[in-house]
Write a protein that binds this DNA or RNA. Structure first.
Length: 471
RNA sequence: GCUCCCGUAGUGUAGCGGCCAAUCAUCACGGCCUCUCGAGCCGUAGACUCGGGUUCAAAUCCCGACGGGAGCACCA
């Protein structure tokens, strides 16, 4: 078994690409086959040099390895040869009609006069095209079936002229194969046995096989699956690009976006994406998944690995009378041995405003891991009294910091789209104090702030910021 | 408009003629456990779009309706 992942190097990879890549890769693994990474860079207007590397980085992040890597644009000579074969067989012809006329003809199943062009004449124009002569607007069309009920079969375009410098090939070529031609040919000659593609290509299957038949090339076993869509998370560049241009999102790695970079930044681990893709399977039923499924998977992976720390949002000052000075060590994980951190306490603490709101004088709560405190005074500055060490059942255990805190903010992502329009409240900033030990973390580490959630820590210059993954 | 694909709990998903009074996950709710509102454990609730047909037997096969999606580019 040989599979392949054929991205166009025109942008960052997103969860939809991940589904395809993971399915392709895993199938090859399961059947002990080969997996090919092929850049379908047959349109110099789209392909950008930086994305070849970017996409490979994204794949590596997903722990995907490939046995072979190549660019379709490296094989143009072969494509030309095969095109010539089609021309000589009378299976392709040069069409010089306008795009509008072609569209019109397709719609009404009417062939244009170009279809009558002889092989000889077509071959002549074809050569002229290749050698950068005139013949602008000419395309090479498959002699398909203009009467076919399937519009994709009504003489689809095989090659067209694009006079633009290619990021890899420079100005070496100006005649480029379309997806229909390049995809079929490459799958076949590269030895791919099981190419997967998304459902929207289904109507092009007959084109795919027709091309290979005429060329007498081996036919792979095409398979289709539905596109992956996540509620409130658009995948299309059409929708994301305007947001970036308007400055509504920071970039393609915005934590609200389902790009691999966005997911990574927010603390979704590759293994979670892999498991998520598996849980979806490769059926053709279209569905819109809720992101909570990804979160649940990610949480299960992270829970035994993430260190625990305290973070206090909306901090209010708490002074404790008779507070014993302590040097305590708190475990970094409740059940897994990950070491501990030391905290020195005196009589001043910061606690979460929300935790204090429902407290009244006389209530007892526990500074988690430390001791109990009885409220004496509520308000803007809260005071309490030391109330012993002993755990009291059913008292609230709240997280806290000393005055030796780190000020930080956490970005909390929400659904970027609500009912198809930009959700202005999709990114919330949580300001607060984290305990000192957080400064020892490596940038990129994913931790759990107790009672807050899993957060990926990033160090930017002097600042420490957090990106909220999920509860 | 034409063509194709799809249709199982709120959301996904397994099942693809009998073992299905339908799997698993997620979500919601309840309980247990826990010095986190996390994790874990236990439980509750919740689905085969509809109508015909084939068959001893249909979620599974066939037909039709309805609903959803996709394609009808010199983009992939």
């Amino acid at each position: 078994m040989v599979t392949r992942f054929p991205p166009e190097p025109n942008g960052y990879l997103h969860i939809g690409h991940a589904k395809a890549a993971i399915v392709d890769y895993e199938y090859a693994q399961i059947y002990d086959g080969k997996f090919i990474l092929r850049f379908d860079d047959t349109n110099p207007e789209n392909a950008k040099i930086e994305f070849y590397e970017v996409q490979k980085e994204d794949l590596r992040w997903l722990d995907i390895e490939w046995d072979r890597e190549y660019h379709t644009s490296d094989n143009l000579k072969t494509h030309y040869k095969l095109a010539e074969q089609l021309i000589n067989q009378g299976d392709a012809y040069i069409c010089k009609c306008t795009p509008e006329a072609i569209k019109e003809g397709r719609f009404h199943s009417k062939a244009c006069s170009c279809r009558k062009r002889s092989h000889g004449e077509t071959l002549g124009i074809w050569k002229e095209l290749l050698s950068s002569g005139e013949s602008k607007g000419a395309i090479l069309r498959l002699r398909g079936e203009m009467k076919s009920a399937n519009t994709a079969m009504r003489d689809p375009t095989l090659f067209r002229v694009i006079d633009k410098e290619h990021p890899l090939q420079g100005d070496k070529y100006r005649v480029w194969p379309t997806y229909d031609f390049a995809g079929a040919v490459e799958d076949s000659i590269s030895g791919v046995t099981h190419p997967f593609r998304t459902k929207e290509y289904e109507l092009r299957d007959p084109v795919y096989f027709r091309i290979l038949s005429l060329l007498n090339l081996r036919k792979p076993h095409l398979m289709e699956f539905s596109r992956l869509s996540i509620k409130g998370m658009p995948v299309s560049k059409r929708k994301i690009k305007p947001l970036i241009e308007k400055g509504l999102v920071l970039g393609y790695d915005d934590i609200r976006l389902p790009t691999l970079r966005g997911l990574k930044k927010r603390g979704i681990v590759p293994e979670a994406i892999r498991q998520f893709v598996f849980s979806q399977g490769i059926s053709k039923a279209e569905s819109t998944v809720d992101f909570s499924i990804v979160e649940a998977i990610n949480r299960k992976i992270l829970d035994p690995k993430a260190k625990r720390y305290f973070f206090v949002s909306n901090p209010v000052k708490l002074s404790v009378d008779d507070a014993p000075k302590r040097k305590i060590s708190l475990k970094l994980h409740p059940t897994v041995d990950m070491g501990e951190r030391m905290i020195a306490t005196d009589s001043v603490f910061f606690v979460q405003k929300e935790d204090m709101q429902n407290m009244t004088t006389g209530d007892i709560f526990r500074l988690k891991g430390l001791y109990n405190v009885k409220i004496q005074e509520t308000g803007d500055a809260i005071s309490g009294r030391y109330e012993g060490e002993k755990l009291i059942a059913d008292t609230a255990k709240i997280q806290w910091t000393t005055k030796d805190f780190i000020k930080m903010k956490i970005y909390v992502p929400g659904l970027i789209f609500k009912k198809d329009s930009y959700n202005t409240k999709s990114l919330v900033e949580l300001h607060g104090y984290a305990e000192k030990a957080v400064s020892d973390l490596k940038s990129g580490e994913i931790i759990q702030f107790e009672r807050v959630g899993f957060v990926r820590i990033e160090k930017q210059e002097e600042e420490i910021i957090g990106f909220f993954a999920h509860k």
